[in-house]
């Protein structure tokens, strides 16, 4: 039985197709992790299952921590679908949001985006303090919800398929490193903005943040110092 009515494809990401539809008469998102034909079927099956579990678990954990993520409605391994709350209304990806601000020729891009960066730093600090490592932090995996008063847009974190629970500073450092490179390569000349994010992370994380940020520095240096032969 297909529990979805009138499913409509809205996006094909790297791993999943996102459909909009309704679930028990509620508007819902259907995230279907379609079969990857390039991958060995056994490998594909195990990766998909692992990621669906990781995603559902982390989404639930985040809501318990008060981090805005889509609520999980249902999960079905046989069709590879997670059904979740539709959060798309009045939202756009952080990536588009930053692009728009950068292209709007406003003189003070930094000032305009600062509160948002502080909010992101705070959210990641909350995740990490609670040992949730997202595993794929990019500006495509953050949604900005535009409120009626545009002063403090809300940030929704999505795509937890690569997430896992880990308390180590190393893994948190790598999590920040992944975001840093995705951020700076996607949005050139935003080093200052990213600093704001890290400062907010440090403030909100509190005790133990130095350890993570030192790890971040260490991971960065690993990249810089790697001898690249061939």
């Amino acid at each position: 039985m297909d529990i979805a009515d009138n499913k409509q494809l809205v996006k094909q990401g790297a791993e999943a197709k996102i459909f909009k539809g309704s679930f028990l008469r509620k508007p819902a998102m259907f995230k279907e992790r379609f079969r990857k034909t390039y991958r060995h079927p056994i490998l594909d099956e195990s990766i998909t299952k692992e990621r669906m579990k990781a995603e559902a678990r982390s989404l639930v954990r985040c809501r318990m921590l008060g981090i805005h993520t889509p609520a999980v409605y249902s999960i079905d391994f046989s069709t590879r679908v997670i059904i979740m709350e539709d959060v798309s209304e009045d939202t756009q990806t952080m990536r588009m949001y930053i692009d728009n601000v950068q292209n709007s020729n406003k003189n003070d891009v930094l000032k305009e985006l600062k509160p948002l960066m502080e909010r992101v730093g705070q959210i990641i600090a909350t995740l990490h303090k609670n040992s949730i490592v997202h595993g794929d932090l990019t500006t495509s995996n953050m949604l900005v919800k535009l409120g009626r008063d545009r002063s403090t847009p809300e940030v929704i974190i999505i795509d937890f398929g690569l997430s896992y629970v880990d308390g180590s500073a190393e893994d948190k450092g790598v999590d920040l490193y992944v975001l840093e490179r995705a951020f700076l390569s996607t949005h050139p000349n935003t080093e200052e903005l990213f600093k704001t994010l890290l400062q907010s992370y440090r403030r909100n994380y509190g005790k133990g943040s130095s350890e993570v940020l030192n790890k971040l520095e260490e991971v960065r240096m690993r990249g810089r110092k790697r001898t690249m032969v061939g």
Partner: peptide, 13 residues
């Protein structure tokens, strides 16, 4: 035969 091996992906890394 596929031997299960560690599969380590961190975002785009």
């Amino acid at each position: 035969i596929l031997v299960p091996l560690p599969y380590v992906v961190k975002g785009m890394d």
